[in-house]
Design a protein around this nucleic acid. Sequence first.
RNA 1: GGUGAUGUAGUUCAGCUGGUUAGAAUGCCGGCCUGUCACGCCGGAGGUCGCGGGUUCGAAUCCCGUCGUCACCGCCA
Length: 585
Amino acid sequence: MYRTHTCGELKIGDAGKSVTLSGWIQRSRDLGGLTFIDLRDRYGLTQLIFNMDTDPALCNEARKMGREFVIQVDGIVRERSNKNPKMPTGDIEIQAEHMKVLNGSITPPFTIEEESDGGDELRMKFRYLDLRRPPLKNNLLLRHQMAFESRNYLNSQHFIEVETPVLIKSTPEGARDFVVPSRVNSGQFYALPQSPQTFKQLLMVAGFDRYMQIVKCFRDEDLRADRQPEFTQIDCEMSFVHQEDVLNVFEGLITHLFSSVKGIGFSEPFPRMTFAEAMQKYGNDKPDIRFGMEFKELTDHVKGKNFAVFDSAEYIGCIVAEGCSEYTRKQLDELTEFIRKPQIGGKGLIYIRCNTDGTFKSSVDKFYTPEELQIIAATTGAKAGDLLLLMAGELIHTLKALSELRLEMGNRLGLRKKGIFKPLWVLDFPLLEWNEENKRFYAMHHPFTSPKPEDIDLLNTDPGKVRANAYDCVINGVEIGGGSIRIHEEGLQKRMFQVLGFTDTEAENQFGFLMQAFRYGAPPHGGIAFGLDRLVSLFAGEDSIRDVIAFPKNNAGRDVMADAPSEISTEQLKELSISILKADK
RNA sequence: GGUGAUGUAGUUCAGCUGGUUAGAAUGCCGGCCUGUCACGCCGGAGGUCGCGGGUUCGAAUCCCGUCGUCACCGCCA
């Protein structure tokens, strides 16, 4: 028997017991006559003690043990003379009687401790060692718990988990597909699913009523801290539901996760906000509502004073930074520099200080009298001691830049605390988005999203104005889930493809199987998918989803541990009837 | 596709306006130590300064290119 107990469970009440433990050597402390070894497994750390007086041979052997050796030790649980209150097992130690080396270890390239000394790249290359560290280990335990509780809740709501295929048909809409060549069907390719969307809809047609799946999805797009080419969704679909039903069931899921995993309850239902309202107040379809600082529009209040920047602007808006009227020139310059960064693209920042003595100082004093500044400040609701930050320009760009500025100010003022969670539903997204480059509309969510019934006529006259039965769940500025009520009628689905610029033949070729299914009694249905990786990283307080994925890809989509992707042999290529184009130059 | 940051002992980093033998901490190896828990003390080994080219009497340092890593923009229905 390798062990009678784990390294985390022995406590003072076990004193006197004969036990066997197996695990990894975290660290050893050789004091000459005494040697201590901290033995680690998934469950914790337990101190072993070897004494030169009682067993010199064993003690000498223990002195030779290196970090990360795997050993098995038999011994007696003893109460410590010097207790360590910092350790859960700090009241006891194991007086070793026998030791067996189960496997040695070469010196690890970085320290395997709470805070490692290793850099990202190195730890990624030795991921299996990094995963021994408590922070990463705990993230994976948390992930398991969240997946388990999700299934638990959804099972209680009569969802059944159904596996959908991973080798599917490639479609040009949406993100780029990962493709897989078919050997048997020479020259043809499968795609890996960006989501099981059509299959879960077909399961509704099949009458399963409530489907869920914790499922890998694949998108061949560039990576970010919160984006991996393969990621996991809690994918769900329900029949005979309106939007309200879906929101209620999945508000229940999120609430259940918070209470069962973090012990956090929400006293109020999740607030709801339309897409239009989110854009107007926060310049963002996934606002962080842990803090206010909502936009105040000033377009109609500040024009006509010969200030060209304002007079030529489509939109002028501002945020009120409470208590920041004392910001120094340097701090204001930093903010200007921030919004001027190319990825934000702001041209300039205008400030109005509402001094505590009731006076006003601004960067546009040349154009506005103190009285006019006071009126502007009053319009925004600013108080003495506040700082107004104004941006002006083309509508969409200015909203976006002002949104970045708001988040930056939130960070600077410490208003985005990690332990605070503010969920939010964003509703009524536009159905379509105009793409200037290709001169056509694209589905904002996906082509199976239903338009709001009252907006259907706009499909013919002003498609850009059509609102969808689509909703996102946002927590702390992170989009953690999104879904919609789907189209379940062949006619409307065909109309949708027409608006998206598909010919009937193209629509038939790509999605004929779905529209065929709609002819056989498709029930009204809708659903949602949550990003498990993002949810777990939010719960764990991690900034990157890589920290909650066992074996993630790096910035360039590479697995640096296994060194994938890699070239394949000419034999393999030949078998697949594939030739590789030589790169230019 | 683009912008920025970065690359120096096993590891994390310092290394100024170019100047003798490239440092620190930690880890590793050896010695001492009976209550440590980041044990302590003494000693030691350890470097293709990412790679290639250029400027210079002289380059870790300046310039050009290239590769890797990270963050972001584009992209992500």
